[in-house]
């Protein structure tokens, strides 16, 4: 079974006309048998990473290797074969075909992959027994609870015994009564010969994980001395999409705040003069930088960076004073 090796992964796409870069030179290694949790706030790129692992999205640059397969290079029939045979996907919304029974959902997935009728039928029954749905095989999804649908979805992901399972928020659509069975099932899947990658907000899954990958930058609450930064004219302080730890005040010169557009152009948002601050939202809410900060092109600029705690204390003093 393949280990997974991600190197220099950059993903950039357009959202509302703006360039969004959830991954910038991202690296990750996962070993066979790992159950990895991708944690992070909404929009941090969890589903994007799953989609890239499943070869549904192609990264802007970088490499994803699953065993000997360079996933980013797959095309045409090889791409379909990879999706079919190497990856099993568990969707947040289950995504069972509503017109098919539980058993038929599995059967069709296998038939689409060229499995014969009798073996496909037998395997579908075995998998549904494995997930505890032997009595609900002939029910359509509409007649199953959310937890049961998710178990069917997991069984479908296992239909072709793929070495990589990716699960997108598998517990998000379930109530607390239904979560237990799904969590246990996901844990059991991560066995030697298989890697399970789960994108989730659900911290109940944390004890299951062999690896936890935080995709949201940590808030910089630690103590850290103020950081004086001297910038040459036109020099970039931080780029849109970077992790954001510090809040900056302009000591001298001028900072241009610029939004990078999807078409490669730049749109000026604001000019920050001495005595004013910028860049507070990213550390405050654990977000990536939503714009680029660059020293004015015509004069050298000096800024000082503060941790969020120091920045708050400083503003409080300043207000009190």
């Amino acid at each position: 079974m393949p280990d997974i090796r991600i190197r220099n992964l950059t993903m950039e796409y357009s959202s509302g006309g703006y360039a969004v870069r959830p991954f910038d030179q991202f690296d990750l290694d996962l070993k066979t048998g790992d159950l990895a949790l991708l944690l992070g706030a909404s929009g941090c790129g969890k589903t994007t990473l799953l989609s890239m692992l499943a070869s549904i999205l192609t990264p802007t640059s970088g490499s994803i290797q699953v065993g000997d397969t360079e996933v980013t290079a797959l095309k045409g029939a090889d791409l379909s074969r990879y999706r079919r045979e190497t990856v099993g996907v568990v969707f947040q919304a289950f995504n069972l075909i509503p017109s098919l029974t539980a058993k038929e959902n599995l059967y069709v997935a296998m038939r689409n992959a060229g499995v014969g009728r009798a073996p496909a039928k037998k395997r579908a029954e075995e998998l549904l027994e494995m997930v505890g749905l032997e009595h609900r095989m002939d029910h359509r999804p509409g007649k199953l609870s959310g937890g049961q649908q998710q178990r069917v979805s997991i069984a479908r992901a296992l239909a072709l015994d793929p070495p990589l399972i990716v699960a997108d928020e598998p517990t998000a659509s379930l109530d607390y009564m239904q979560v237990d069975g799904v969590i246990r099932l996901l844990r059991e899947l991560a066995a030697p010969g298989r890697v399970v990658v789960i994108a989730t907000h659900d911290e109940r899954l944390l004890p299951l994980a062999d690896r936890v990958v935080e995709l949201t930058p940590h808030r910089a609450e630690e103590s850290r001395p103020p950081e004086r930064v001297e910038l040459a004219p036109g020099q970039t302080l931080f780029r849109q999409g970077d992790e954001g730890i510090m809040v900056y005040e302009v000591d001298s010169g001028r900072i241009d705040i610029i939004q990078e557009m999807a078409d490669g152009t730049e749109q000026p948002l604001a000019v920050v003069e001495p005595g004013n601050y910028f860049g507070e939202l990213a550390p405050m809410f654990g977000l990536r930088r939503s714009a680029t900060a660059r020293a004015a092109a015509d004069l050298p600029t000096v800024v000082t960076g503060y941790t969020l705690r120091d920045f708050r204390a400083r503003r409080s003093l300043s207000t009190d004073g």
Partner: peptide, 9 residues
């Protein structure tokens, strides 16, 4: 989309 994501021809 599911068919495509799961590699159905």
């Amino acid at each position: 989309a599911v068919f495509k994501a799961t590699g159905a021809p």
